[in-house]
């Protein structure tokens, strides 16, 4: 098997007596969608924060493309190729859809230090932003204020901003959150085609989406990975059924 694009090695993070992340090692290989599931309070958010750079682990390492990024800031990790989407859309609501997509293009070009020329008349930036909008189906809405978008469209824009970064790995935090059935189906179809470009670490509550998309699933409970395997293996795993699926499956 080839080297993982993104991996965590024995991550530990404790808040007082609560060990929110307990010796977590997961890998994300090229071409795969690796789903991370777990009941509320399992430590998913804490783990995401450590992977993205919001929190520094007590011990352990985060490795992105063979490079140890454990001590790096969120911005450095983003520049190193980590494309993140947020559970609750983090978009500049006053700005237009295109301007939001431009932010990603700007960051990817590493050149925000231009004070005179209009961002909207920079062809290279705009093309990059527009092509991402086209791919998620928002090209026609490019001049609308982001605050006017529906919830589903905001989810699409959230993915589009990550696309403009042309990352080497995606980390998607509940991209399906709040989407209706139709919206979920469309996004599932889209993410399905995305894995060839860059692997996705998918944190998701929507089990239909997870089972439809994931090549592998890791189950997090009480801060620990209690199982990792294919969809079928996870469905059959008795520990998983007890810890998680048992409640509603």
């Amino acid at each position: 098997m080839s080297d993982p694009i993104l991996s965590t090695h024995n991550l530990v993070k404790a808040f007082g007596a609560l060990t929110a992340t307990d010796d977590v090692s997961i890998d994300l290989f090229p071409g795969e969608i690796h789903a991370l599931i777990g009941p509320n309070g399992a430590g998913k958010s804490t783990l995401i924060a450590q992977i993205c750079g919001g929190l520094t682990p007590d011990s352990g390492r985060v490795v992105l493309q063979g490079r140890d990024v454990t001590q790096d800031s969120t911005a450095v990790r983003a520049r190193a190729g980590l494309g993140r989407t947020f559970q609750i859309s983090a978009l500049a609501m006053e700005d237009t859809v295109l301007e939001n997509a431009l932010l990603g293009a700007l960051g990817a070009s590493h050149r925000p230090w231009r004070f005179w020329r209009k961002a909207l008349s920079d062809k290279a930036l705009c093309e990059r932003a527009l092509s991402a909008l086209e791919r998620v189906g928002l090209a026609d809405d490019k001049d609308r204020r982001t605050s006017e978008l529906s919830h589903g469209q905001r989810r699409q824009l959230e993915v589009a901003v990550a696309l403009t970064l042309e990352p080497r790995a995606f980390l998607m935090d509940e991209p399906m959150a709040g989407l209706g059935t139709g919206g979920s189906q469309r996004l599932i179809g889209f993410l399905d085609g995305l894995r060839g470009e860059a692997p996705i670490l998918l944190v998701e509550h929507d089990m239909d989406a997870v089972f439809a998309l994931a090549d592998r699933i890791s189950v997090l409970a009480s801060g620990q990975v209690i199982a990792t395997g294919t969809v079928d293996e996870i469905r059959r795993d008795p520990a998983v059924r007890e810890a998680y699926l048992g409640e509603d499956a």
Binding site: S73, L91, L103, H110, V161, L165
Partner: peptide, 11 residues
């Protein structure tokens, strides 16, 4: 508006 977003695009 959204500092978190700015960081995740590498700025």
């Amino acid at each position: 508006q959204v500092p978190a977003r700015i960081e995740t695009v590498g700025l």
